[in-house]
Amino acid sequence: MEIGDILKDLERNVNDGRSSRFNLLEQKQQDFAKLNQTWISERTAPELLPYQKELVDSTLVRLRDQVEIIEINSIELETTDADIKLKLLIIENEIERINFIIRSYLRCRLAKIDKFAAYISYNSQTMIDRLSDGEIDYMTQHMKLLQELYSKCFLQDLPDHLQLLDDTSGGISMITEPNFDKFVFIKVVTGDAKPVRFNDHEIVLEKDDIHTIQYKYIMKQLQQGDVVLI
C-alpha cells in the first residue's frame, strides 16, 4: 500500500467514525447506486466516459475489508454456529455481485480503449484524462505491440506511404471514432431538465420520461445529471 492510500484509509476511518451510522448507511447505498449507474452508462454510451477513480477505489477498499472478515471468521468455522455461516454466505454473495459489476465495467472500458486507441491518443489531453493510469499503460503498450506485429508481418513489405496506420487523407480516415449519432435510451431523473433543441425540433424532458435520442443531442443533459442512460 502506498502512503496516499494509507492516508485515504485513515481519512475514511475518521469520517466513518464521525458521521452517524445512518449517514454511513446512506453513503453506502448512494455509492452502490452510483456504481450501478456508472456501469450502465459505460455500457450504453458510444464513447469512453471519464474513469470513476474515487468510486472504484473506495469500493475496492470496502471489498478488501469484507474479504478480511471472511478470512478471520472462516479460520474457526468448524466451531462456530450456523449464524456465522449464514453471514459469511451473505458477505461472500455480495462480494461476488460487486466483483462482477466492477469487472464488467473495467472490461467494457478496455474494449472501448482497444477500439478507440488511435482516436484517444491523437485527440487531445482531455480524452487521455478520462483514462486511469493503468489504462494509459495498457493502451500505449497494446498499441506498440500491435504496430510492431503489423509491421513485422506485412507492413514492412509495402511502400512507405502505405505503411501508416492512422492515415486520414484520401477521404476515409483510418481512425475509428465513437459514433456520436448513435441512438441511446435515456431516463429523465430531475424535474428541471432543459428541453433538447436541434434543427427544428424540440423535445420536452419531463421527470421519469424515457426517450431514445441521438447521443450528441443529449450530452449536455447527461453531464448535468438531469438525465441518465439506461
Partner: peptide, 13 residues
C-alpha cells in the same frame, strides 16, 4: 430474530 447487524458493502442488514 438475529442479534446483531451485518455490515455490507452496499447496505447493511
Amino acid at each position: 430474530s438475529m442479534n446483531d447487524k451485518l455490515s455490507l458493502i452496499s447496505t447493511e442488514l
